[in-house]
Amino acid sequence: MAILEGVEARTKAKEIKMTYLTTIRAAVSRRAAYNRTRRELRAMPRQTAWDLGLMPEDANRIARSAVYG
């Protein structure tokens, strides 16, 4: 019985570690998408941005909204 409880505890610890790693990977992925989106918005020619109704100065806000909701 004690051996089985030890195995269950180790399995639970592994699940917690994997959940933690998954959360970190998702956060890193979202941050990379935010940086990429912001960089592309800032690099957009001003006339193109205006045609789309965007201001390059709003790149941070727009990227945040696009990636994080």
Rank of each mutant, 00 (worst) to 15 (best):
R42D: 10
T23D: 03
R42M: 15
G6V: 05
G69P: 01
V28Y: 05
A63I: 04
R61W: 05
T23G: 13
N35D: 11
R46N: 09
D51G: 12
V28Q: 13
L52E: 01
R31Q: 03
A59F: 02
L52Y: 13
R10V: 10
D58F: 04
R38V: 00
M44K: 03
Y20F: 11
A2F: 08
A26D: 14
R25V: 12
R61A: 14
M1Q: 09
R38F: 03
M44C: 04
I24L: 14
A13I: 08
A26S: 08
A9T: 11
R31N: 10
R31T: 12
G6S: 09
R46P: 05
W50V: 12
L21Y: 11
E40W: 11
E57L: 10
A49E: 02
A63M: 04
L4R: 12
A66V: 12
G69R: 14
K17E: 14
R10C: 01
R25Q: 13
T19G: 15
V28R: 12
N60G: 03
T19S: 15
R61M: 09
N35A: 03
R38Y: 03
T48V: 07
M1Y: 09
R30T: 00
R30M: 07
L54E: 01
L52T: 05
K17Y: 07
R30F: 03
P45A: 04
T48F: 10
I62P: 11
